[in-house]
Each structure stands twice: as C-alpha cells, then as structure tokens.
C-alpha cells in the first residue's frame, strides 16, 4: 500500500492502462500538454504525445460523438469531461448513440469508452459546475456508472473501466480529489457491481454514495459512543447496483437510510428503496428513509449552497428519526 490522493490513484490506473494498451487515448479540454484541469493526465502527454493525449475545442457533443465512432472502430477513448455539467450538450450522442450501438448491432460492435470527470456540489461552483446527474445514466440501458469514494477504489474502478467493453461513467466528486488514502501498488481492479461494507453494524443500514460515505462513517463513529451501531454500505457502482449486499444488510438491521447528494425524484434512493421493498419487505422494521440534496439548481453563495446538500447534521438527524420509528 502507498499513500496517494484520489486523483493520483486514478492517474496511476490510467497510466498503467495506457502503457499496456496502445489503443487508449484521452480527449478533453486541457487533457493534453496541460495535463488536465484536475491533473488527471499530468505527465502523460510527455510520455504518449498529442494523438493519445488530445486537446479538444470546447465541443462536448462533437468529441463525444467522435469518441463513439472511435470506440466502434477499434480504439478505446477516454473522455475527460472536466465537469459533468459540460457533457449535457452531448446527451443525444450518449443516449441515442453510445449506449445503443452494441444492441443495435446485435452484439457485433463493442463500445469501450470511458467518460470521466468531476461531479458534486461545493466550492461555490454554482449551477453549471456542480452537477452530478448520474441517476440519468443509470436509467439508460447500456451504461455502467462507477462512483468511487476513496483513492483505492478510484484506482481499482478506473482500472476496471479502462478494460470494460461497455461505456462507463467514472465520476469523481470534487471534494474527494485531494483526499489521501492507502492504495494497493501494481495491478488493482475493483469489479463492478460489488458494494463495499465500509463499516459493519447492526442497528441500521446507511447506503451512502461518494462523498456521503465519509459523512456517514463519521456519524457512525460519533453515534457508536451512544451504543448505536450503524452499517455503512458504499455501492461503488450504481450501474450495476449490488442490491444483494444491501438486502443482506437490511436483513440484519431491519432499517435503511439512503444518503445521496443528487436529487431525490427518480433517484438512486428511489431505486434502492423500491428494490428493498419488493424483495425485503418482511425484513423491514421501519419505513425506508431517503436523504437527498434539495431539488433545486445549485446556488452560489456558501450559505445557500450549504442549505441544499446533506451534511453531518442532517444525516445524524435522519439516522435518529429512522431509529425512533
């Protein structure tokens, strides 16, 4: 194990994969010589040159469409979209083209394309640089969606994404980019569809996504002094979603809270809740609870911004309400 930041860990996975597979190339605004807006490609241009580390004009639809065509013809593009808000211009390409090619070709085409970039509210980035939008992609058949919450998973999930034959969203919460943690050296892959039990417990299950995992772990630690035992589950990928690990936990605790920074309606929490209700209704001792970011565009001012995201106070309150049911 080596201590690495989240970004360094993901970059290690990219660098290793690019060494091993000459068909990988990265496109994005500043992904070339500049080394990426968030240093996602730092040092790689010097090694691999401008065709594999390709700076683009600001035309997300254009380069997503171009990368779709590239993935259909034998290469493995990585779209470094900087902020997920930016790829909304390419939604038609993603949803009508990228996600459907394998199906429409009856399995004759592959779509080995990775879409990676920043998500999440914070830094007063306001509404055009704070989006997450991953529930949108979970809804669409054909996509994989990875949401790493720590450096080791960043490396392991990115390594898996870079070897997948399906299109993968690899979404990095901005608050996590500089987070340090132990990372396995050498080859390290985390399979998709396997949740991590981030903390074991018996009184209630908290499923938390990306940065919320860290808030939930802190609450669990604090509440343990009161004799409250929380189990924290980090799904790590939401498409595919490891519902079995969640169900297993609920069988043990009988109570479930889902904490997600993204919007509540038709979200990941709704999906998990429906699944647990359908398959684990008899295990529940209380109604399932969801805690989400407010259903509003992201405001700028720190005081407004703070009011729209789940924080430790609101998570703790939700846990206490769930336990009181």
């Amino acid at each position: 194990m080596t201590e690495r930041t989240f970004t360094e860990a993901a970059r290690e996975a990219l660098s290793d994969a690019m060494d091993a597979d000459p068909t990988i190339f990265v496109v994005g605004e500043g992904a070339g010589e500049r080394g990426g807006n968030f240093e996602t490609t730092a040092g790689l241009y010097e090694k691999h040159g401008p065709v594999r580390l390709c700076d683009t004009p600001i035309c997300e639809r254009g380069f997503i469409g171009m990368c779709t065509g590239a993935a259909m013809t034998g290469t493995r593009p990585v779209v470094d979209f900087m902020f997920t808000d930016f790829i909304l211009d390419g939604l038609g390409e993603l949803i009508n083209q990228t996600s459907k090619m394998q199906y429409m070709s009856n399995g004759r085409l592959k779509m080995p394309m990775v879409l990676r970039g920043c998500i999440g509210i914070g830094h007063s980035a306001a509404t055009h640089h704070s989006g997450s939008y991953y529930p949108l992609f979970v809804h669409i058949p054909g996509f994989r969606v990875a949401l790493p919450s720590n450096p080791a998973d960043a490396k392991g999930l990115f390594a898996t994404a870079l070897r997948s034959e399906d299109p993968v969203f690899f979404m990095e919460h901005r608050h996590l980019l500089n987070l340090k943690g132990p990372v396995p050296e050498g080859e390290h892959r985390v399979p998709f569809g396997q949740a991590a039990v981030a903390r074991e417990g018996t009184d209630a299950t908290v499923v938390a996504l990306t940065v919320m995992v860290h808030h939930a772990l802190q609450i669990a630690e604090e509440l343990s002094s009161e004799g409250i035992s929380l189990e924290i589950i980090d799904p790590r990928t939401v498409a595919p979603l490891d519902t079995e690990t969640i169900l297993e936990s609920v069988r043990k605790t009988g109570r479930l809270l889902i904490v997600d920074e993204t919007f509540m309606p038709c979200g990941i929490g709704a999906e998990i809740s429906a699944h647990v209700t359908e398959h684990g209704f008899d295990e529940l001792d209380a109604p399932i609870k969801r805690l989400n970011g407010a259903h509003v565009p992201t405001p700028y001012s720190p005081s407004l911004e703070q009011a729209v995201i789940p924080d430790r106070t609101s998570i703790e309150q939700a846990v206490r309400e769930l336990l009181a049911e």
Partner: peptide, 17 residues
Amino acid sequence: GPCILQAAGAGYSAKLL
C-alpha cells in the same frame, strides 16, 4: 447529424492505429 461525428471518430481510430 451523429454520423458526421462518428465518421470523424473512425478517422481518429485510423490515425491512432
């Protein structure tokens, strides 16, 4: 429209490979 972008992508593959 998308065919225009995808053809550019096939060109990109050809260039890289």
